[in-house]
Amino acid sequence: MPNNEIKKTDIPQVLEISDVVGEGKEQKSFFFKQSLQCRPGQFIMVWIPGLDEKPMAVSYWSRNEFAFTSKAIGKFTNALEKLKKGDKVGIRGPYGSSFSIKSNACVVGGGVGMASVSTLIDVLKNPIVINGARSKEYLIYLDRFKSKKMIVATDDGSFGRKGFVTQVLNGVLTENKKIKMVYTCGQEIMMKKVLGVCNRHNVECEASLERYMACGFGICGKCMINDKLCCVDGPIFNSKQLMSMPDFGNFAMLKSGRKVTIEEYHKIH
């Protein structure tokens, strides 16, 4: 009988932060000099000893280094923001599904959602990047992706085009019939609209979803989106999966397991 599966390990490894880089208003990247076997779109669990542990997308990746990018929103991310080079956090993972790598792709990132698609942009061949945020100061990775074909949009028009990323995407897909795939991460309401635009243009879509998680490896059941587990079946879901999930863009479970509207969920988590 098989007996090697019990060697599985999912315990935080405490690492020193090798660098902290400011990315945009309230957003910072935390770097670690450590190799990590990782595919674009996967996430890690970040532990601040004595406080809490949360999932974060891997936003920079090279052979001997990785980073995640966090936006200070709640108690945990505000504590993260105060951390400096040399401070220690626990890391486990990576976890979850990853983006498929297709050519003729467009990547749509909203705000800090850019973090989940950034390592994908690094490996894609000549993607069109739509980088959007509320206003100029919230935009991230402008320098990082300046060599890419990038369209920047802000809701208030303070930088780049004025308008939502979905409007920009609609224009791109109308003009450029070669695009076969759209990758997206941002607010779930935005991603639902992105999927809608893709469906109208008959273009495949992959989105990175977020839910409250305890384990990250398919045990606790807190991140269920209908019959899917966000942590192991996702966080990357394709058009077919997204359309089979009535909860997508509509409902999410709180820490207690009670299902609420996505707006209410974002107020709490």
Binding site: I6, K7, K8, T9, D10, I11, P12, M45, W47, L51, D52, E53, K54, G90, R92, A214, C215, I219, C220, L254, K255, S256, R258
Partner: peptide
């Protein structure tokens, strides 16, 4: 009643 439970880390595993 509804309960949130504890903060994370709430579970982990190693070596059986």
């Amino acid at each position: 009643e509804e309960r949130d439970g504890f903060s994370n880390p709430a579970m982990f595993g190693y070596d059986g």
